[in-house]
Design a protein around this nucleic acid. Structure first.
Lengths: 249, 249
DNA sequence: CGCATGGTTTGATCCATGTCAAAACCAGTG
DNA sequence: CACTGGTTTTGACATGGATCAAACCATGCG
């Protein structure tokens, strides 16, 4: 049928370009490109873009120009309601791809805000699409990334729809832990880049509830918090919290 | 760069095949194919598949074989928690594409259950991917569909995270209404194919709360319910309900 | 350094929704 | 038709989390 098109030199160049642009392990599975080459092309090509703490990477309603891969830093995305209510839809860190929601209508439907000074790289959608037409493994990988976002969203629904406050928080902390670990950082000790209010918004709770739950976890010896600094001291117990709350009934 | 590849006869044949398989307007934007041809190829090719009420189309954990487009009928998808809790993640009707969550890991992460006798058609992912490499507009369309699912999910998060019971229910009813309307059915009168419990699960509420809220809407003249049959008698009021609840504070 | 600002903690109280229970209803079946 | 099991409604009551309020703390700035 459709033989996997052999890659031309130009294809390979373009592939390197997209991949290197963002040091996205995310998008870089496809071909085995060597590090030095990547690094070189890196400086030539890319639309790297700094985003200062508090700045918007994009806002709901504006036209989609590119997807953005986070190189460094930490961001949140927020869905808005006409009446001003806003809901944090996710927290994003190094390697995450943002803007997928905008493909649907060519307009962003959420805000993306940097929670600390960050650096992103732009990936023009049309270029990515063109390239992924030529390189099946890139195509597949892109699809997986979108699908992974859907899976994540389902997880959040489960959390919001059927867990209670402390379960939600435990799940949240474990999720952060895991993601930091996957990026080579400590799984047990990290900074909460976001405020209690933002955590609350994400978890469908009020900031006071977050604060109280954190205090409780600390009393119970599950964590140690001091301001934004947090240390997970009993991960198994946190895990146990998630499932067993509702088992009595 | 990469010129939009001209379509061979075979391409066009395959495109027709995928599109016709499911009478998916969803996937059929790309080329202007005439109705009769579609209908003909329809019978030749397709993996149409009936799903009886109560049957699983797929279950969490099993391997991804295909995506499924709903031809007729009504389904729900449920995310599960180890401890048995289950959460309805969505309701799906004619034209919707199911199974996108499984692309990420090659395994389904939710159950899909028919809420009435339905008919789906299988779309092998690999075929769809192959074809979309050859036909840019199909590729783009597929991306939009995935993105649309993400957008939907963000909407659900907003709903679960920051709306209260009656707002959620109003939003739910209006959403259903809109989707029926988009498919040529009445926007104001339809059957709720799911139980109160399933609505509750989807909305993060208990069935009693759903029941009470429906009764209240009826008292207030917003709707008329009789068992599963529902009629939206004051859509503007329902709409108003969604935003204005929290405006006092 | 001290002040201002925004974030956090903690307490007291209230309310929306959950829980438990019973009765009514309905759809399908023998 | 009557019986059965599942669904829905409604009521009474309990409770988790929201709300309101005040004090505390950290950070940044003049």
């Amino acid at each position: 049928m459709s033989p996997p098109s052999t890659l031309t030199q130009i294809d390979i160049y373009k592939l390197r370009k997209v991949c290197s642009v963002c040091s996205l392990r995310e998008l870089c599975l496809p071909a085995g490109l060597d590090q030095r080459e990547l690094a070189q092309i890196d400086q030539l090509v890319n639309r790297r873009q700094p985003v200062k703490r508090g700045d918007y990477l994009f806002r709901a309603g504006i036209e989609l120009r590119s997807l953005y891969a986070i190189r460094t830093g930490f961001m949140k995305s927020c869905v808005l309601h006409e009446d001003g209510r806003e809901q944090v839809a996710g927290f994003h860190m190094m390697g995450d791809l943002m803007g997928l929601d905008a493909i649907s209508s060519n307009r962003h439907i959420c805000d993306a805000v940097a929670l600390e000074d960050s650096e992103v790289c732009e990936i023009p959608l049309s270029e990515l699409e063109a390239l992924s037409r030529e390189i099946p493994s890139l195509q597949q990988h892109f699809h997986r990334i979108m699908s992974r976002e859907i899976v994540r969203d389902y997880g959040v629904m489960l959390l919001l729809g059927s867990m209670k406050a402390e379960e939600r928080l435990a799940a949240f902390l474990l999720n952060l832990s895991q993601r930091f670990a996957a990026r080579g950082y400590s799984a047990t000790e990290f900074n909460l880049r976001m405020t209690r209010e933002e955590i609350g918004s994400y978890l469908g709770l009020k900031l006071e509830t977050i604060s109280r739950a954190l205090s409780r976890f600390q009393e119970d010896g599950l964590i140690a918090v001091r301001n934004k600094r947090i240390k997970l001291t009993d991960i198994p117990a946190l895990r146990a919290l998630i499932g067993h709350q509702a088992c009595g009934g």
